[in-house]
């Protein structure tokens, strides 16, 4: 494995979330990734891992969820893949985030956060795996604002 790259492969068990978080934490520290892209990467990994575990294997079979992160210049690229049932998260309807408190439901919020906070998102189904590729810019962004704003 080249420097500046992280490769993680985990069983589809929710208990592995802690391992994922710890490995990512160590990676962003070692790479001196600024706090905002580091947070966005960790959030994306967390949301995808949870979604894959919760919905990818409805028959309860054992599966494998992988994450590869690499830094190329000013861009952080993250590739998530899992061997769960085919599912394109970006085809799901966006949640209504402008509704009143009473109207607000939470379905799809995780994917919405990831889609908004990543600079690019892509999905493909490849060799029986869901593959999601995200990029995060390491260039300075104003605090508390999404890159698209």
């Amino acid at each position: 494995m080249a420097d500046h790259e992280l490769d993680i492969c985990l069983a589809n068990e929710i208990g592995k979330l802690e391992t994922l978080a710890e490995r990512l934490e160590a990676y962003v520290e070692a790479e001196a990734i600024p706090p905002t892209p580091a947070y966005r990467l960790q959030l994306a990994a967390d949301e995808f891992f949870n979604n894959a575990v919760d919905y990818g294997y409805p028959d309860g079979r054992a599966g494998e969820i992988a994450l590869r992160v690499r830094r190329a210049g000013n861009v952080l690229e993250a590739i998530f893949s899992d061997d769960g049932n085919a599912f394109d998260p970006f085809q799901a309807p966006a949640p209504d985030i402008a509704g009143s408190l009473e109207e607000r439901r939470i379905g799809g919020l995780g994917v919405h956060l990831v889609r908004t906070l990543a600079d690019s998102v892509a999905y493909r189904r490849e060799d029986g795996r869901n593959v999601v590729t995200l990029t995060f810019s390491l260039a300075a962004t104003p605090q508390g604002s999404a890159p698209e704003s």
Binding site: P35, T36, Y39, R40, L43, I97, A98, G99, S100, L101, R104, L109, H112, L113, T116, L117, Q143, G144, S145, A146
Partner: peptide, 16 residues
């Protein structure tokens, strides 16, 4: 913290 604030903003929670 700014990163948590960003998540509140993006989810629309800041208006609620």
């Amino acid at each position: 913290i700014p990163q948590v604030h960003e998540v509140f903003d993006v989810s629309g929670f800041s208006t609620l």
